[in-house]
Design a protein around this nucleic acid. Structure first.
Lengths: 342, 342
DNA sequence: GGGGGTCGTGGAAACGTTTCCATACCGCTA
DNA sequence: TAGCGGTATGGAAACGTTTCCACGACCCCC
């Protein structure tokens, strides 16, 4: 009857206590590394724990401590396309990195569509996690509202679209885009197009605004013909660039709001027989791995991802521990990385 | 003192009971939709619940029911590259789809590196989830062992590398690869190369084996020169194809073990001035979105992803409910999708 | 040699549910 | 009218922890 791998009768604190010849309270103290316990008792408990293969029941613990030691990274998107974004992978890596030597766990929750957003909201409200980092990208998202109203510790990745008062960490998207565009201007380019991100995402909006402000500051018109909206995918970048080339044969530079799109744009340029950077200079955004790998290597705007993810977890932990004094927001400076494409 | 969004004093069952003028037990029955409760009592409880904005505490519930109503999809990888795989996105979408109208929640756990694998193992063993679907791709993974030994309900996505006795769902990778290769043979191709996946992943191994068996059955040698190992990325496919073209100028077809790589290979072929399919025919694997979008559209091997994800959740739920009779495995047939590239 | 301090320990109350069991009440039939 | 099966309800015991509190042992110093 043994060896079936059944998890029917997990050992409890009591059993450990009996085996070690001490009380439940003492076992609990050993488990939680309280200093108030004699070496002998500690020793006895530890061997008993090992012998029984005791693992604390987190539910019971959470019930009394009111903490789960888990935080959620919620991806609120209408489709699952976000997964293919290398930017997202970096965020996940960064966050789990900064959690590595805490005893906090990270879970990912994917909420696409209204139904799943509600389900995810319920999950969080039910107390499964202590706090949430929310990547909410589009304007019609229910979750920021649900979670903020419920008073769940919450940090947004990216400035909220609706100006809601909530903690967030963001890159200086507008500043980075402005710097990228100014860089192209410095290189003597004058007919500078842009491939924007989706304009219902804050990153899309802010990067476009940065481009505009640099153009206006340089006394140049932003002609509608020079602006085409992309979707942060490589195929989207390809099509957008092809469109631009059809519209304006004379453009001499393009600021692309993400590296992924820029790679597609690069392909379109090559297909059209334009040389980069001689005929058309190009600057991307994100400093993704692809940016340095492609041909020619891409000038791009780097975000301090490591800082940003660290800040997100710090802000969140402070909220969870009740040490946060109100809303905190951080906007991180970006950095232009010059390579061969401009 | 209100309106601070504090979650300090959440309402409990007792408070609902008092407000509704019934006992805790009755409230619990209403919450859990037991039929044994009078319409009046039900009504009273429901208004009380609404008025207090009562949300059950899942920890307390889990403590007694010993269920969390949560399952985990664990991504055990050495890097986070897996996120960029569209195959993975489809799996996530499929699983959360089949869970949509159950009251099961899905969490994603990313475990890259030994340290995070152990942390994830602990998380599961602590009882945070009822069961696990594990995408473990490389041979040095600790998690299948940890979880299987602990008797946690477990389903693997993909046949285990070490032949361990554990439930899994997989596509017939070898069969699909064989069919793809036979298709190329049927088209009269004879110098058929292959770009394999990583050969420490089961999908890589099995697809390569399928290619070999088709070649051998056709009485053809599998020359080492015709085989190059890829890594399931587009850049990898590009390089692998370039290598192949350097080695053997006379090859007339290539079976590529994933569509993502095939897209890269297609680029390499174009760069080398080879026409597809006239000079070189190409077949991919996965039927990813990119396969139908690229130029020319890619002949590929489709996996019944929807069936597979449904089976994974079914197998897992059966295990969780104790209705599973031992190990169950499912191998799903693949289907050749003919397009223009062959 | 007694009083105050520390320190290790155990008892027991909480945490918020579910669920078993007993009870009270209802309308029947015999 | 007594008895009976059925149904809605409430009381209370679990579930496995943490943590407050009290208690005794010990040491040190006056």
């Amino acid at each position: 009857m043994t060896g079936t791998g059944g998890r029917s009768a997990l050992p409890t604190l009591d059993q450990v206590a009996v085996l070690a010849g001490v009380s439940r309270a003492t076992v609990s103290r050993v488990i939680n590394e309280s200093p108030r316990v004699s070496p002998e008792a500690r020793e006895a408990v530890q061997t008993a724990v090992a012998q029984l293969r005791y693992v604390p029941n987190r539910m019971a613990r959470s019930l009394v401590t009111r903490r789960t030691d888990t935080i959620a990274l919620v991806l609120s998107e209408s489709n699952t396309q976000i997964f293919s974004d290398p930017f997202f992978a970096s965020i996940v890596r960064g966050i789990s990195g900064s959690l590595a030597d805490t005893d906090l766990n990270l879970v990912l929750l994917a909420a696409r569509g209204k139904r799943e957003q509600e389900k995810t909201g319920r999950y969080v409200l039910h107390g499964h996690v202590d706090g949430v980092i929310l990547m909410s990208l589009h304007s019609d998202d229910l979750l920021p509202g649900i979670l903020a109203d419920a008073g769940v510790p919450l940090v947004l990745s990216g400035r909220p679209l609706d100006g809601r008062a909530v903690s967030y960490v963001d890159a200086d998207n507008a500043g980075g885009a402005r710097a990228a565009t100014e860089h192209l201007l410095d290189r003597g380019r004058v007919r500078i197009a842009t491939i924007t991100g989706p304009l219902d995402m804050i990153a899309g909006i802010d990067r476009y605004a940065g481009y505009r402000s640099a153009m206006v500051a340089a006394g140049l018109d932003v002609e509608p013909e020079l602006v085409v909206q992309g979707d942060f995918t490589e195929a989207g970048g390809f099509h957008a660039m092809s469109d631009l080339l059809d519209r304006r044969r004379d453009l001499d530079a393009v600021f692309v709001a993400s590296d992924t799109m820029a790679v597609g744009a690069l392909r379109a340029l090559r297909a059209a027989g334009r040389r980069v950077p001689e005929d058309v200079a190009i600057v991307g955004f994100d400093d993704a791995a692809a940016a340095s790998a492609c041909d020619p290597p891409l000038t791009t705007v780097a975000q301090p991802l490591e800082d940003m993810t660290r800040l997100m977890t710090e802000l969140l932990v402070r909220q969870i521990e009740g040490a946060a004094d109100g809303i905190e927001t951080e906007v991180c400076a970006t950095r232009l990385v010059r390579r061969m494409s401009s």
